[in-house]
């Protein structure tokens, strides 16, 4: 029994110290505003994390939009309410699925790659030699990647939702024969700029912060061994996915829970 308590205690302390190290990493990388010279570095990272994630985002968005639309339409048609397909689709996408699914895909595609890249740079002493050259690796390597994540994920989310709506239109209007006027006007009646799109984007920004932070920290903190690296990459996907889902629940309560 005391062994169990002790191991829980040790784990909790481990967790606290990791949280402390992660916060320090964040602070030291992001303290001070980015300088103009860093823009090129950020652009290069947006290419790596954002642009390179486009294909998976677009493909997933189209099929998710199509499936949602199919389900909404066939179920709502039983009550003669198929005109509500558009609004249902748009609300679900803007409020929940857009930000969440994009963040999960982003964690799998870009987050794990970030962890592996930074971990490898550390293992091969690239970060260390940089420090010896009088260049701060946190500002040079870590900060641009965090900025790139913060910029890329909301943009990816917007692209995701747009493509998913398009996928929904293809299925509902072009294939199932829903009335396009009812589809769009129902959508525009029910969707509000700040309440739905705005809050969804805020969610996406919070997820971007979480996923890139976890990814960068896991890479920076990984033990410099093959085992440590593969562990860190897995951890990035697992931890950031759980964090995204848990945070989404909290944010939904705060944003839409009426109490």
């Amino acid at each position: 029994m005391s062994d169990l308590l002790r191991s829980i205690g040790v784990r909790f302390l481990d967790f606290l110290s990791a949280l402390g190290r992660a916060s320090l990493l964040w602070y030291r990388a992001m303290a001070g505003l980015p300088r103009w010279g860093d823009v090129a570095l950020v652009v290069k990272q947006i290419y790596n994390v954002g642009f390179m994630s486009l294909i998976i985002i677009v493909l997933s968005a189209f099929s998710i939009g199509a499936v949602l639309s199919l389900q909404f339409y066939t179920q709502l048609a039983r009550f003669g309410a198929q005109d509500a397909t558009g609004v249902g689709l748009a609300l679900v996408l803007l409020r929940e699925l857009g930000p969440v699914v994009t963040a999960l895909l982003f964690a799998g595609r870009a987050g794990s790659a970030l962890t592996a890249e930074i971990g490898l740079m550390k293992t091969t002493e690239q970060l260390s030699i940089m420090e010896m050259m009088g260049v701060d690796p946190l500002r040079r390597i870590i900060a641009p990647r965090i900025w790139a994540g913060l910029i890329s994920l909301p943009l990816l989310t917007a692209i995701f939702s747009m493509v998913a709506v398009y996928g929904g239109v293809v299925v509902a209007v072009n294939w199932l024969g829903a009335d396009p006027g009812g589809f769009w006007s129902g959508m525009q009646d029910g969707v509000e700029l700040w309440e739905d799109l705005g809050k969804g984007m805020v969610k996406s920004l919070v997820f971007a912060l979480l996923v890139t932070w976890v990814a960068v920290f896991q890479g920076y903190d990984a033990p410099p061994t093959a085992e440590g690296m593969s562990m860190a990459t897995t951890q990035t996907v697992v931890i950031s996915s759980v964090l995204v889902l848990a945070t989404d629940f909290l944010l939904t309560l705060v944003f839409y829970g009426d109490f």
Binding site: A40, V43, K44, I46, Y47, G50, F51, L54, A90, L94, I151, S152, P154, L155, L156, A158, I159, F160, S161, M162, V163, V165, W184, M187, Q188, D189, V191, E192, L193, D196, L197, M201
Partner: peptide, 30 residues
Amino acid sequence: RMRTIEISVGGFVLAGVIGLVFLAVQVSGV
């Protein structure tokens, strides 16, 4: 090579902004 990257990133950001505008105008009906 840097130029290709810049163009790709430019296209990506543009696509994101178009997405936002589309969602605001066409979906939210602003």
